[in-house]
Design a protein around this nucleic acid. Structure first.
Lengths: 291, 291
DNA sequence: AGAATAGTGTCTGTAAGACAATATTGT
DNA sequence: ACAATATTGTCTTACAGACACTATTCT
């Protein structure tokens, strides 16, 4: 990457020859994805139903084990990054091919129009009775996608409205999540809560709301994204002013929207080229969590 | 945690009996800490010099392997969380005992006065020639601490001014980092850059600047923290107004500062009880990174 | 005609940046 | 006396929220 110091090759080789990876207790690393989309004016998360224990029959985030180097492999064998494992987990369930940028903290793939960024790593040690499992969670934002297909180890895959999970996102803790239609495996209720909260705060400072939209969209559609994700209504007029005064958020696509309801045709826009919103578009409720 | 569904106990036991963790390729998980403090008006990061390959002799972040469940252990044996592994890595180098809160995303330990929060997980797969190594990075903020002591596997531990590392924090990439006095192992230059950037942005929205200060501090000392971490000068008068108008940021300690320089004695404050600053204290340079 | 929506304009309070002014202490 | 610092106050500009108003299209 940068500035790797030259190492003494002899002692390094000798060290590696004497090294046995199996002297370490085994640890498994999984990449689990909180994939969010908007379907029928609801914020939905992609869940799969587990076919095998532990938590057989419970709902879980799509995930996959990190493909690791095997002892016989050469030291420079191409290996999977965690980002790639997350993209693979999502692809196996949705059929989307996401070429995740290896270097970037977050990657927005223009072709597949799926945004993927790392959320946080969870590892209580007691998650899985088999062995220590560390879960690297990701958040993915996507426009409305087709019905997912169940992959290996799962019996069903479904876009589930977050509201139906009865998770309290506001609190940092997950409170209810009992007696719902979707009992969740492991600590995935907490991970979903964190993912939704990340998405909410991302809308404030980044232009990612357009990741929920199609190629082109009207300002109203963009406002609906904010209203659905944040769960609050916004002033249409003020919202237009804010979006258009945030340079690089959107750029005009020239065309007008097709017919579909009352009112005049709306101007269409596409995503701009900024990485951050200046000024940001803040939630009114941001004042809550002060304690 | 919540809502664990009842599982069929028989099949679960049968499944576990047939399960051999060693069929997975080995993965190691390390917790690496970007510990930041202010010493002599410089932002410093704790580095250790590696005693063993790989990167023998290079400087690295203090870290430790996650202690994992061994195959013979009972399924409910108390295990180390990643947060605890990070706290342990820091304790082994600084002598600080940090009782990291297992549940919390971030933990501020009032007794040891060290703030610890997870940064992000790095795993290019090619980090370590021995096996796939996943590194869970943490950021720690602490007031000025005593000189660290080298632990196992390290020959030296030192607080190093971030400036001397010649890492370009502004860019998302690490550009230089050649020919410095402190060649860094692995991708630790990138992790340090991310940690410093996290600290800078944390000062905007959270009251954590006081984590760099002692039990009580003056507004000027707090302003110096901002100026040193952000690398820019602030208007003293406007800074006072912002801090005092942000409820819960600081509370009066009653006393006045001791003598030490010119000017009148400053009022002393201690950290308040808010978790977020409203309104935030923003960097002027926040307008840069728009692209 | 009436309802719903897109988009523009206006008013007001709040907060930020810049800077002046005053008081207090060490050299 | 002078320099450095702490603290308060003032002025101007920018922006957010609230809301009025016009124009367009469907039913």
């Amino acid at each position: 990457m940068n500035g790797k110091p030259q190492e003494p090759a002899q002692s390094e080789e000798a060290f590696l020859a004497a090294y046995d990876p199996y002297t370490f207790p085994p640890v498994a690393v999984t990449a689990d994805v909180v994939a969010l989309t908007i379907r029928e004016r609801e914020l939905c998360v992609l869940l799969v139903r587990r076919a095998r224990p532990p938590y057989e029959g419970a709902w879980a985030l799509p995930g996959s084990f990190l493909a690791a180097r095997r002892p016989g492999d050469p030291a420079d064998a191409p290996l999977e990054t965690i980002d790639e494992a997350a993209a693979r987990a999502l692809a196996e369930k949705t059929g989307l091919t996401i070429a995740a940028d290896t270097q970037a903290v977050s990657a927005y793939n223009a072709a597949s129009r799926v945004y993927l960024e790392q959320l946080r790593t969870y590892g209580d040690g007691s998650r899985d009775p088999r062995m220590t499992v560390v879960s690297v969670a990701y958040m993915a934002l996507a426009p409305s996608l087709p019905e997912p297909t169940a992959g290996a180890g799962t019996v069903e895959a479904r876009w589930v409205p977050v509201r139906e999970l009865e998770i309290d996102i506001e609190e940092d803790r997950v409170v209810s999540q009992n007696a719902t239609q979707y009992p969740l495996a492991f600590d995935h209720a907490q991970i979903i809560a964190d993912g939704v909260e990340r998405a909410r705060s991302k809308l404030e400072y980044s232009p990612l709301a357009s990741a929920f939209c199609g190629e082109t969209f009207s300002i109203s559609q963009l406002r609906h994204v904010y209203e659905i994700v944040w769960g609050e209504t916004l002033h249409p007029s003020n919202f237009v002013r804010k979006v258009l005064s945030s340079p690089g958020f959107v750029e005009s696509a020239g065309a007008l929207s097709a017919a579909g309801g009352a009112g005049p045709r709306a101007k269409l826009y596409r995503a701009g080229d900024c990485a951050l919103l200046h000024p940001p578009i803040l939630r009114a409720a941001s004042e809550r969590k002060i304690r």
